[in-house]
Each structure stands twice: as structure tokens, then as C-alpha cells.
């Protein structure tokens, strides 16, 4: 994202100018929708999450502090938290329902990746699984490091080190892509 656009969107958001929402959607909706799908694993629920997240972003725009986080980081946190809440809410609802037959309503996996992101995605695929599962658990499943340790059955210290190394590896991978694209 170009800093100028980011700055312009933030200014519009602070001024409660509705054009900010249109610009946010144009520039960030695809990435945020991908995050919502990764967390919920359900495209229909992810749409609800995205809609709810944009409303929250609009209502809480005055809380955003550009000195503390990049705009995308803040947007990501809003979508991630909203998606985790939606999944938990659905799980509570599901446990209350009497399942007569197995339904696949909540498990439509997304396959429609944006073409322009395919190269990056393939490079992200280049990340070793042991790092990917840790980053996914922490970034997309909303787990704490302790929860990830319990869930993945690996020591807490290993979770910490794999997160750090995984992020460093990602930097390398994306660095390669950026160099490749610039050529």
C-alpha cells in the first residue's frame, strides 16, 4: 500500500468522511476477506465478518493511532478479532443444535484466490510447515502462544522460536518476490 493512500484514508476516516470506507474496501477488502476466510473457513460467514468489521472500523476510527501501528495492522486486528468471535459464537450455537444429519453449511473452503496474489501465495507456500502451522495458529486462529503449544503439542519455547524464525523466513521469501517483481 502506498503511504500516500494510507495517509489519505486515515485522514478521511478521522474526519468521518464516508469516502474512506469506499477507499478502504478498494485497497484492503481482498486481503481482509482472505484473513476472514482463513479464520472462519467459511466464505458465507467470512462475508458477514467483513461487513461487521468495516462497520467497527468506521465507528472506532477515532481510536486508531497511526504512531502505534500501520493501518493494515489495525485493520487486520479488527477483522481477526471479529472472525474469532464469529467462530466462537457459531461453535456455541452449533453445540446447542441437534444435528439430524451432517451439514456442510459451515465448511465451504475458499478456492478463489486473487490472481494477482498467486505468486506471493506460492512463495508463502515455500515456508516450512513447522513455521507455517505456528504462524497460522497465532495469526489466524487467535491462539495464545500457550494455546498453540498445547494444540500443536510442542514446547512453549519452540513456539516462540518458530514464530520468530518463521517471520524471518517470510521476510526473506517476500524479499525475493519483491526483487523478482521489480525486475
Amino acid at each position: 500500500m502506498k503511504p500516500f493512500i494510507e495517509q489519505h484514508i486515515v485522514e478521511l476516516l478521522k474526519a468521518q468522511d464516508e469516502r474512506a470506507i469506499g477507499l478502504l474496501y478498494d485497497h484492503y477488502a481482498d486481503a481482509l476477506f482472505g484473513v476472514a476466510i482463513k479464520v472462519t473457513k467459511d466464505e458465507v460467514l467470512a462475508q458477514d465478518v467483513l461487513q461487521e468489521s468495516f462497520v467497527k472500523i468506521w465507528k472506532n476510527a477515532h481510536k486508531y493511532d497511526s504512531s502505534k501501528a500501520r493501518l493494515f495492522t489495525w485493520l487486520f486486528r479488527v477483522v481477526q478479532n471479529t472472525a474469532i468471535d464469529a467462530v466462537r459464537s457459531r461453535q456455541r450455537k452449533t453445540t446447542k443444535e441437534i444435528q439430524i444429519e451432517e451439514s456442510n453449511v459451515y465448511s465451504i473452503p475458499s478456492t478463489k484466490f486473487a490472481i494477482e496474489h498467486l505468486d506471493i501465495a506460492s512463495h508463502a507456500d515455500g515456508l516450512e510447515d513447522k513455521y507455517r502451522v505456528v504462524i497460522d495458529a497465532l495469526f489466524f486462529q487467535g491462539m495464545t502462544q500457550q494455546e498453540a503449544s498445547d494444540e500443536l503439542n510442542i514446547p512453549l519455547g519452540t513456539v516462540k522460536s518458530r514464530l520468530k524464525i518463521g517471520l524471518r523466513e517470510l521476510r526473506k521469501l517476500f524479499g525475493i518476490v519483491i526483487v523478482f517483481l521489480s525486475i
Partner: peptide
């Protein structure tokens, strides 16, 4: 770290 997060998350982008 923020750049990494954005790039990693963007790699899973789906047309909204």
C-alpha cells in the same frame, strides 16, 4: 514485523 504480517496476510487474499 508489520510488513511481514501484511505480506503474509495478502498472500491469502480472496476477491471480496
Amino acid at each position: 514485523l508489520q510488513e511481514n504480517l501484511e505480506e503474509y496476510a495478502t498472500s491469502f487474499a480472496v476477491p471480496a
